[in-house]
Amino acid sequence: MKKAMLTMVLAASAVAATLPAVAADRQMMMPIEGAMNVNDAKGRLGDTVKFYFGDQKTPKVASKITSDSTSQKTNSVGKSPEEACNWAFLSAMLALKKKAESVGANAVVNIVSNYKHKEMSSQTEFECHDGNIVSGVALKAEFVKLAD
């Protein structure tokens, strides 16, 4: 009896190991304005660094400093896809702000989504990938000093 039970358990384990893992990865386009209006995003980002998305018109650029990217994830368990994506977006924006401050930039321009190194440019939306456990936002941008 024990041997038969062990054989069944081993067989079930072998079958389970061959099945593909079911992991969600839903690509979502989310409104930037919506993300900026929750989680105290505007307050947390402050006004010392200006942000410009896609090909959004900017004031005159005095100097280009550098470019960089960030990929931020958040726990999506118990959150709606919108909530999780907005948190990941805010984390990515805070990372861009921190980089801008560290290199002496007063603006971040040409911000584009860059999930898995695939650029998507928009003035109004960002790309988020929502999973069963984790949601993520990747952004790429240029850091500049705007003319006074």
Rank of each mutant, 00 (worst) to 15 (best):
S113K: 09
K118T: 15
S71H: 14
V77S: 10
A88G: 05
S91H: 14
Q27D: 07
N39S: 09
S121K: 12
V137G: 07
Y52K: 10
V112N: 12
S113L: 07
N132V: 01
S80Q: 05
A11T: 08
A14R: 08
M30Q: 12
K57G: 03
A11W: 06
A100L: 03
S135Y: 08
M5P: 00
C85E: 01
S80K: 04
D130Y: 14
N132H: 13
V15I: 14
V38G: 03
K79H: 03
A41N: 00
I111S: 08
A17V: 00
V9Y: 04
C128R: 12
E33S: 15
A92H: 09
D25Y: 13
A100H: 02
V9C: 03
H129V: 09
G54C: 07
A16Y: 12
K73M: 06
L94Y: 11
K98S: 14
K79I: 00
A141S: 11
A24L: 13
D47P: 02
A100F: 02
F126A: 04
G54R: 07
S121T: 13
V144D: 02
S135V: 06
M5I: 13
S67R: 06
V108T: 07
N37Y: 04
V9R: 00
V9P: 04
V144C: 03
M8S: 11
V9E: 03
A147G: 09
A92R: 04
K140P: 03
T124P: 01
K57P: 00
S80T: 15
M1H: 14
S135K: 05
V49S: 05
K73F: 08
V109L: 02
Q123T: 12
V144S: 07
T48F: 02
Q56P: 05
S76W: 07
K50C: 01
K73G: 04
N110W: 02
E125I: 03
N106W: 04
L10F: 14
F126Y: 15
K145Q: 15
I133T: 11
A95Y: 11
K3N: 09
M29R: 13
S122K: 03
A17H: 01
V134K: 14
T18A: 12
V15H: 01
A41L: 00
M120T: 02
L146N: 08
M8P: 00
N75Y: 12
K116A: 13
F51C: 11
V112Y: 10
V144E: 04
V144G: 06
S63K: 14
Q72D: 01
K79S: 08
D130I: 04
H129Q: 07
V77T: 10
R26A: 13
D40H: 09
A11C: 11
S69W: 06
H129I: 08
A138H: 10
V108Q: 08
E83I: 03
E142M: 03
K145V: 12
K116F: 11
L10P: 09
T48W: 02
P20T: 01
N86T: 00
A14F: 15
N39V: 00
K2C: 05
A4K: 09
S121P: 11
M28L: 15
L90P: 07
A147Q: 15
V108R: 00
M29W: 08
K73S: 11
N114S: 06
M30R: 10
K79G: 00
V103S: 11
L6V: 12
M93E: 09
M36L: 15
K79N: 05
S63A: 12
N110K: 14
V108P: 05
G54K: 05
